[in-house]
Design a protein around this nucleic acid. Structure first.
Length: 673
DNA sequence: ATTAATCCAGTTTTT
DNA sequence: CTGGATTAAT
């Protein structure tokens, strides 16, 4: 079935002999069917499912393909190794190492703490990069470099920070060391470590399939090359490359033939998705980009075409409302309608007005859920239970104690770690009393800095208030107050009573019931019912409390799918943004819309400056990439396409001109100035 | 120095 | 609505 449904172009590509094959597949040409067909071909040729590696841009995409393969081949399809580069890397590495995956946001804090301790030579001409910028730059460097050193890479980008190179590299080195010390890994480490492992392993796969190849960056490419596959099947489209900010490099796809000998290139030119009008419009705009290869798309669709429509509104709010009203009157399945925008900031307004008209909608990435304090706290507590070296989690959790901030949180963690001979958990539960927990601080005393106020206190000074951790050496910290000591005691009781070898769902239950979590949630509730004037609206407390409880239940639900605590926690980092919840109209950024299609598409907020995003272009982005983004957005539409903009944002008091791309599409007569 | 409270600006895109 | 900066208090 998967093979017989293909057209001739798709079939020849899907049944190409093993080797190095590149399929150029424009939007809507049946890329997914071709990959599914290819897998079918491989399986029918006698290749075992576990000898196939399918790399996709999202885990959802690979699951979709696998389920299509499963329709024909049944459960053995599930044995195909598949997922994002990161997911596949993690799957391998987790068997070998104790990994704590951390969000970039979290590691940024760690990075900053290192960077901000550096002293730069006095130099007036170019100030050094901020810690924040340097962190992002370093990540981009790891993704985008082709084996150059940081210095080479940086100067190739036209930066004159040569004077600071040694300091920057020192920061990176310390950052790497710290991550290793605490068992941390970030997204980049997954790929780097996996590539390292694979260089020493024989390739476990007969063929690697790589979807969205145009968005592969050099680091991901290194993963493929480290695997040294005998056979490679890559699918992509230059015009849909929209991840330059993440290091994606079109050179990788365009030099495929030079890099792999005997490479074959296949082109899919029949578009099944969109109507002629939609394709014409998309092509008119993308033609403004320098062509790497000629684009000639053949329209297959014969249904009565509806021309794309430009909607112009006086005001932003009016636009969102207009879109919502059109959706209401369209009488079309909501799941097959998408509102697509360049910037996430468009989503809030849309969501609000859809809600007003009682139109259900779903947004990708439950960001708000994982950002909620109660959820972050629960995950941090679980992290403490999972990885006794997880300093960031300790600090985050301890910071809820009164009088304890990030600095003291760190000192307590380090103290506990010392008391447990490197294991903070042991240090907390069974401290080695022969060790002085704050010895490290004393070393600084020779600088004359802390010796006056950092004198250890009597560990028994809180004894009246405490039961279980009376006399614990950590209580010697001079800045600890009674509240803090009681807080630590609750923490102690939580850690000592929580079993960690049970199912993650039950761990969450244990934590949620603990006086420690209870105590912090109580604080949180009180904070949330506090009005601006300091008044407490106690009537709302139950409601606030219930919201929190619901989130905990949701978290328990999510945890059900994981076999142990580590898998659960790491999965939350690896795939937190991939869960879309709810049903209804799809609210998507262009980036998130990649690979999807909808009957009716609204591309909104097409104002010059916002899209193309001129601020970004000023910072090194390119108009070509923005144009490709526009192309991707347009080609999501199957039947009906609306393009819209507003002349004015009343809230921000900004007047707008229509986007350059509307002009290039021939929808307006004058180019924006 | 560190914490905690308060005020202010500002918001790209993803694993 | 939140991260960042500023400021007062310990």
């Amino acid at each position: 079935m998967p093979l017989s449904g293909l057209n001739l172009e798709q079939y020849s590509a899907a049944t190409a002999p093993m080797g190095y094959n590149l399929v150029i597949a424009s939007a809507g040409t049946g890329k997914t069917s071709t990959i599914v067909g290819r897998i079918a071909y491989l399986l029918e040729s006698g290749i075992q499912p576990q000898e196939i590696l399918l790399l996709t841009f999202t885990n959802k995409a690979s699951q979709e393909m696998i389920s299509r393969v499963a329709k024909r081949f049944g459960d053995i399809a599930k044995r195909i190794e598949c997922g994002t580069f990161h997911a596949v890397s993690y799957r391998f590495l987790k068997e070998k190492y104790h990994i704590s995956l951390k969000q970039p946001k979290e590691l940024k804090v760690l990075f900053k703490s290192i960077a901000q301790n550096r002293v730069y030579p006095h130099q007036t001409s170019t100030p050094p990069y901020s810690a924040q910028y340097l962190f992002d730059l370093y990540s981009l460097f790891l993704n985008a470099r082709n084996n150059e050193s940081f210095e080479e890479w940086l100067s190739a980008r036209g930066s004159d920070h040569g004077a600071y190179i040694d300091i920057y590299e020192g920061i990176f080195e310390e950052y790497q060391m710290l991550k290793k010390q605490h068992n941390y890994m970030d997204y980049n480490d997954l790929l780097i470590e996996y590539a390292k492992e694979m260089r020493e392993h024989p390739c476990p796969y007969q063929e690697i399939l790589c979807d969205e190849y145009q968005d592969t960056n050099p680091l991901q490419n290194q993963v493929i090359q480290a695997l040294e596959p005998k056979s490679l099947f890559c699918v992509g489209d230059y015009d849909q490359s929209i991840y330059a900010f993440n290091g994606a490099d079109i050179a990788i796809i365009s030099s495929f033939k030079e890099i792999y000998h005997n490479a074959k290139v296949w082109t899919l030119s029949k578009n099944y998705r969109s109507t002629r009008h939609i394709l014409d419009l998309a092509n008119r705009v993308i033609e403004k980009n320098a062509r790497i290869y000629p684009k000639s798309l053949e329209v297959i669709k014969t249904s009565e075409p509806i021309p794309p429509k430009l909607l112009v509104y006086e005001e932003l709010f009016e636009q969102y409302q207009g879109v919502a009203k059109r959706i209401l009157s369209a009488n079309h399945p909501l799941d097959d309608i998408a509102i697509i925008f360049r910037n996430n900031s468009s989503a809030d307004g849309c969501e609000a007005l859809l809600r007003e008209l009682n139109i259900p909608s779903k947004r990708k990435g439950g960001v708000s859920f994982f950002d909620a304090k109660e959820v972050a706290l629960m995950l941090d507590i679980c992290s403490v239970l999972y990885n006794h070296k997880d300093m960031m989690a300790y600090i985050n959790v301890l910071s809820y104690g009164s009088g304890i901030g990030s600095a003291m949180g760190k000192e307590i963690y380090e103290g506990l770690s010392a008391l447990g001979n490197g294991n903070a958990r042991v240090g907390l539960l069974r401290p080695d009393t022969s060790i002085r927990p704050f010895a490290k601080r004393a070393k600084n005393a020779q600088l004359g800095l802390f010796d006056d106020f950092f004198t250890l206190q009597d560990v028994e000074r809180f004894d009246i208030a405490l039961r279980t951790i009376k006399g614990h050496p950590i209580l010697a910290h001079p800045k600890l107050n009674v509240e803090g000591a009681k807080f630590l005691e609750m923490f102690f009781e939580l850690v000592s009573s929580c079993k960690t070898n049970i199912h993650p769902t039950n761990i969450i239950t244990q934590v949620a019931r603990s006086p420690f979590y209870e105590h912090i949630i109580e604080q949180l509730c009180l904070q949330r019912i506090k009005g601006k004037d300091g008044s407490m609206d106690f009537a709302r407390k139950d409601e606030v409390r219930e919201k929190i409880d619901r989130k905990v239940v949701l978290l328990q639900d999510i945890a059900k799918g994981y076999e142990n605590l580590g898998r659960f926690l790491n999965a939350m980092v690896l795939g937190s943004s991939e869960n879309t919840q709810g049903s209804g109209v799809n609210l998507l950024t262009i980036h998130a819309s990649k690979g999807l299609e909808f009957g009716i598409v609204f591309v909104i907020d097409l104002m010059h400056g916002r899209f193309p995003n001129l601020k970004l272009i000023a910072k090194g982005g390119s108009i070509e990439e923005e144009r490709r983004l526009f192309y991707v957005a347009i080609t999501r539409a199957k039947e009906v396409l609306y393009l819209s903009y507003a002349k004015r944002d009343a809230v921000k008091n900004i007047d707008y001109q229509p986007s350059l791309f509307l002009y290039e599409a021939g929808l307006i007569q004058e180019a924006p100035s």
